[in-house]
């Protein structure tokens, strides 16, 4: 149990510290790298909770795909650091307001009686020990009780995907594209043309 708490404090403290570094690092690429570190530690916390499937999904989706593209974009942007710092005082009240609202919400959550949870009577924040793998448990609840919501999520993602493709896709004229089928179907009769050239003249 000592080991368990030690790992918990390790993961959570690194996660909080790296989250702090995300907003305070001077270099935006460093910010993204700290964000990734924070994600990885969050997935470590999921493992400690016994939710290993969620932990792995967090790493695969957020760290392995989303953050890669994020890093990709941030690396290529030419960011003016001085200009970035300029609006700091201007945005400070707004940011502080958001932070205060979040703290109040968390406080309300802590102060309310947790046994009157709207979902069921299970106390949250407790790993559920059972023989069924939690991958199966998620599948059983996601594809039965929340089936329609799950499908709607899928459709929303599809709409967003098609929308972003149509926004960025533009057909510029004059782009040469490789047509592999037409290349493969070339034979001597279509590739070579015989011409009679008159002596002393070109084609």
């Amino acid at each position: 149990m000592v080991l368990y708490s030690l790992t918990f404090y390790l993961f959570s403290s690194v996660a909080v510290l790296s989250a702090l570094m995300v907003i305070s690092a001077k270099n935006p690429v460093h910010s993204v790298l700290f964000l990734i570190l924070s994600f990885v530690n969050a997935s470590g916390l999921f493992v400690l909770l016994g939710a290993e499937f969620l932990a792995m999904i967090l790493v695969v989706v957020y760290v392995g795909a989303v953050a890669v593209l994020f890093l990709f974009v941030v690396m290529m942007l030419d960011i003016n650091f001085v200009k970035l710092r300029e609006g700091f005082l201007q945005y400070l009240p707004f940011g502080a307001l958001l932070g205060i609202v979040l703290v109040i919400e968390l406080g309300i959550l802590f102060l309310t009686d947790r046994s009157s949870n709207i979902y069921n009577n299970q106390t949250p924040l407790q790993p559920i020990v059972s023989e069924v793998e939690n991958t199966k448990m998620i599948g059983q609840i996601l594809y039965t009780e929340y089936f329609y919501l799950f499908q709607i999520c899928g459709i929303i993602l599809l709409v967003a995907m098609i929308g972003s493709i149509t926004l960025t896709l533009r057909d510029k004229g004059g782009v040469k594209r490789q047509n592999i089928d037409s290349q493969n179907t070339v034979d001597a009769s279509t590739a070579i043309e015989k011409k009679k050239v008159k002596i002393g003249e070109g084609i």
Partner: peptide, 23 residues
């Protein structure tokens, strides 16, 4: 229990070494 997911996650993280080196 999620061995294959773990392998998939680790192999997808491999790109970070390369991106960080390049940058």
């Amino acid at each position: 229990n999620v061995g294959i997911m773990y392998l998939f996650a680790v192999s997808s993280l491999g790109v970070y070494g390369i991106i960080m080196a390049g940058w």
